[in-house]
Amino acid sequence: MKKTFWIALAVLAAACFLGEPVRLAAFSQSELENMVPEGFKLSVPLQYYGTAENKMADGSIFDYMDGGGVVYLERGFREMVHGEYRDQHGNAVVLDIFSMTKSEQAQAALNDERICPPAGTPLKSDFIGVAHRFPPDYYLYFCQGNRLVYLHVSNDALAEMLKRFAVRVQKFCAKEKK
């Protein structure tokens, strides 16, 4: 038990010395890196953002979405992962997984019109979420536990592909710890 404690302490100290930002401990990074929409590839490495007080590898939510981050903070935002994918035709997919402190906060964020515009089409099956089609854009928001997921594709003809990717993201979030 003592040995484990000292090893953990040494790892922590090494991380501090190297100045390595703490990444999203709650996510299986390699699994997330390998999970891409059909026909797409990650165009830039996954990015991780925290709060202004608790920055992640790529900074705070303000580094990602500028002033819009205030609304997410009001809804209990803790950290997020951002993925960008491209296919050979130049279409782009964006994935954002926002981790809130509590499930109710993720739900409240989904219902917050400042985050998710009203009058979207409810998603079918097991999803708690909505989709918006603003040609050529198509995007959807859904909740899974304490997480709010945003998925966007630059070409709404690929809406069905995006929904299939959403199912995989949902399953991934469901088995991840808080």
Binding site: G68, E113, R114, C116, P117, H132, F134, D137, Y139
Partner: peptide, 12 residues
């Protein structure tokens, strides 16, 4: 550039 704009957040 108002060729495409948004009149509420996220709604173009």
């Amino acid at each position: 550039d108002g060729l495409r704009g948004s009149y509420r957040r996220g709604v173009p």
